[in-house]
């Protein structure tokens, strides 16, 4: 919990990150930046998926279509938030020489994507049309 509060403080006072510890090797920072961008792309892909469900499955019943699309879009929102949060925390850990942060987010995200994919397969196979 205190970790979360610390991250929140960093979100709103970004200059603090520069005051802490030593500047790491620029290559490490760039690798961290690429990881951030990969997460951002994942978020964008999920958003694209949300659009795609809405536009390319027009025969689906309204509730299913909206539900699946919103689930993907919500995952996209969470993913982009987590991208920045993780980037800030990694940057801070590298400056302080601590271990890099780990979390359950990748597992949760892959489970959500698996559930949405399964739901789509079921819905398309059994043709729950509106």
């Amino acid at each position: 919990m205190s970790n979360f509060v610390q991250s929140l403080r960093l979100w709103f006072a970004p200059e603090r990150i520069r005051e802490e510890g030593d500047t790491p090797d620029y290559r490490f920072s760039l690798a961290n930046e690429r990881t951030f961008l990969a997460w951002l792309r994942t978020a964008l892909a999920l958003i694209g998926g949300g659009f795609a469900v809405d536009q390319f499955l027009p025969d689906l019943r309204w509730g299913w279509r909206i539900g699946l699309a919103l689930a993907l879009l919500a995952a996209g929102v969470l993913c982009s938030l987590r991208a920045v949060n993780h980037w800030v925390r990694c940057e801070r850990a590298m400056r302080r020489g601590e271990d890099l942060p780990v979390g359950r987010f990748p597992t949760v995200l892959s489970l959500v994507v698996a559930v949405v994919a399964l739901a789509m397969v079921v819905v398309v196979l059994f043709g729950w049309e509106g």
């Binding site: 951002l40 964008l44 958003i47």
Partner: peptide, 21 residues
């Protein structure tokens, strides 16, 4: 290093795109 502001701008653009969607 990428600035925190730059990272936030990119992420907020993505987030807002999801909200628009």
């Amino acid at each position: 290093t990428l600035t925190v502001r730059g990272a936030w701008t990119a992420a907020v653009c993505t987030l807002a795109l999801a909200v628009c969607a």
